[in-house]
Design a protein around this nucleic acid. Structure first.
Lengths: 105, 105
DNA sequence: TTAATATATGAATACATATTCATAAGTTAA
DNA sequence: TTAACTTATGAATATGTATTCATATATTAA
C-alpha cells in the first residue's frame, strides 16, 4: 500500500470483507481459541480441555476460522493440530490486544 | 504492557471485552461509518447520505459505537458530529486495513 | 407560539448464529 | 476384522441483532 493511499473511504466490498474477519473475531470462544493457538499448534482436544469448551463447539468454531483462513489444521495421526494461518493474523491479534489494553476504562 | 507479558492466554473476561469490540467492528455498515469519520467529524445526516444508509439506522449504529467508546458525538446547533473516540481506535482501524490488504486472497 | 430541521428511541420483524445433541468419519491398536 | 480414540458434521434450538417504521426529542427560524 503506497503512502498516498487513504483509509477514509471504505468501499462496500472492502467493508464486507473486513467486517467478515472482525465478525469472526467478535466471539469470546473463537478469540480464546485463536490466542491459545497463537504461539504453537494445538490439538482440538487440547483446546477444548484447556478452554473448557465442548469438543463439538471447538470443531464448529475451527471450521469457521479455517474458512476465513485465520487458522490452518494439520493432521498428525489421530489428532489435528491447529495454528494461526500466518504472521499477519498473529501480529494483528497482538496489535489489537495492545490497543485494547491501552484504552482506559 | 511490559515486555515479559504474553498474549497466549486470554482470560475469559479479557476475551469477552475484546470480542465485544470486534463484534461491533464486524458489521459492514458500522465499519463504513467508522472509516467515514476517521479523519474528521461528520454529522449524522452526512453519514447517512454519503453511505446510503437510513438516518435511523445510522443513529442506531452510532449509539452502539458510542456505548463502546469507539466514537464520541458533539452537538453543533441542530446537528451532531461524530468522530473516532481517540487515536487508539484510529490506529487500530488503520492497522487492521493494512493487515487485511496484506493478505493475499 | 408554530413550523421546520436534525437526531434519537421503542417496537416489531426477519435473519443470523452460538451452542448442544446425536452421530458420522478418519486413524491407530489389538 | 473389531474396538478405542479423535475430530467433523447435520439438525435443532434458543438467543442475538441488523433493519425498518413510526414517533419522540432537541434545536433553530419565523
Amino acid at each position: 500500500m503506497s503512502a498516498q493511499d487513504h483509509y477514509d473511504t471504505l468501499s462496500l466490498q472492502d467493508s464486507t470483507i473486513l467486517a467478515e474477519t472482525f465478525r469472526l473475531l467478535g466471539d469470546p470462544s473463537r478469540l480464546r481459541i485463536l490466542f491459545y493457538c497463537l504461539n504453537e499448534p494445538k490439538s482440538v482436544g487440547d483446546i477444548a480441555e484447556q478452554l473448557d469448551l465442548s469438543q463439538t463447539l471447538v470443531s464448529h468454531h475451527l471450521r469457521l476460522l479455517r474458512g476465513a483462513r485465520l487458522v490452518i489444521g494439520e493432521r498428525r495421526s489421530r489428532q489435528v493440530f491447529y495454528a494461526l494461518a500466518d504472521d499477519h493474523v498473529r501480529d494483528m491479534l497482538k496489535d489489537m490486544v495492545v490497543h485494547i489494553k491501552e484504552e482506559e476504562f
